[in-house]
């Protein structure tokens, strides 16, 4: 997914002269092709996120469209004030590409894990927040970023994630993607949550459940209408995200459902990372599974929620 995203930046630089790439000491060989093709629009800066975001805002107000890439916690936590003031307050077309959203960097520990990036980016006025599920979906997203006038946070997953999306529905920023309708349970996903949900479908259906699946690659603006339409057909909703249960997809779903003042409240569960720093290292998937973020975890959560 990261490769697809950066290749897209290179391709977009060829079709739009505003596009510049700014990396922060990313590592040898990153986007070498773009460096060669558009040296005047390629910047590999030092480890200085605060300065980079200010500089990107300056360039954006000067007519450029910077795509800034570094590891997700550094672009969100370290430079949050610059995100708020320089990017959001000025509402400039800077694109933040965060490597390793969630616990991709499990072996590197909590300093490198972005478990609250969606929450903090979602709370920033004017920011669009996107977490796609795979490389194909990334390729559908990226050309659309040329048309957005404000800042965008693009969360990257690990890379080489299985392809779980298709182009049967157009990708529109701010629009949910309904994959399947159901009568009992609705799974709402973002990022690689879609993969986990898809893997859980057969086991859920073997339990006799009719399961709906709604993918929300855009966390903000959030497609409340689509969520309400699909949740009106079911008895229970589970949100699935590789993110803290505080402030991300689960919170967005909860907010919409709560404020809809439904006549018949739905049963609801946020499946995500608990409110703590990871207590072990290991791999991304093992860490997630330990917190119930897996196909099995979704099945168990559904059984508990629906008292099967």
């Amino acid at each position: 997914m990261r490769k697809a995203c950066l290749q897209e930046v290179h391709r977009l630089a060829g079709v739009d002269e505003r596009v510049v790439f700014i990396g922060s000491d990313l590592g040898f060989g990153t986007l070498d092709e773009m460096r060669k093709d558009y040296p005047e629009r390629f910047f590999m800066e030092g480890i200085s996120e605060a300065n980079i975001l200010g500089m990107a805002a300056g360039m954006a107000l000067d007519g450029w469209m910077p795509y800034v890439n570094t590891i997700a916690p550094f672009i969100t936590r370290r430079a949050y004030e610059q995100v708020i003031v320089d990017l959001c307050m000025h509402n400039v077309p800077v694109r933040l590409i965060g490597n390793g959203g969630g616990v991709v960097y499990a072996p590197l520990g909590p300093t490198h894990q972005a478990i609250e990036d969606l929450a903090v980016m979602r709370a920033a006025p004017n920011m669009t927040v996107v977490a796609v599920a795979d490389a194909d979906e990334m390729r559908r997203l990226m050309p659309l970023t040329l048309n957005e006038s404000g800042p965008i946070y693009i969360r990257l997953a690990k890379g080489y994630d299985p392809i779980v999306t298709d182009d049967s529905q157009p990708f529109i920023i701010g629009r949910g993607l309904p994959f399947q309708k159901g009568k009992d349970l609705l799974l709402v996903t973002t990022g690689i949550g879609l993969r986990l949900a898809r893997e859980s479908m057969s086991a859920l259906e073997e339990n006799g459940l009719s399961v709906g699946l709604l993918h929300m690659p855009t966390i903000k603006p959030f497609d409340s209408e689509m969520l309400l339409e699909m949740s009106s057909q079911v008895k229970a909703v589970i949100s699935v995200e590789e993110h803290s249960v505080i402030g991300g997809l689960g919170s967005a779903v909860a907010e919409v459902l709560a404020e809809a003042c439904l006549d018949k409240p739905l049963r609801f569960k946020r499946l995500g990372l608990p409110d703590c720093f990871a207590d072990s290292y290991g791999s991304q998937l093992s860490l997630m599974a330990g917190y119930g973020l897996s196909a099995d975890g979704i099945v168990k959560a559904a059984e508990t929620l629906l008292e099967i």
Binding site: G54, A57, M59, L61, D62, D86
Partner: peptide, 12 residues
């Protein structure tokens, strides 16, 4: 923050 912004304007 203004200083970095200004540097971005100059680079642009």
């Amino acid at each position: 923050q203004g200083f970095s912004f200004a540097l971005g304007c100059a680079l642009g």
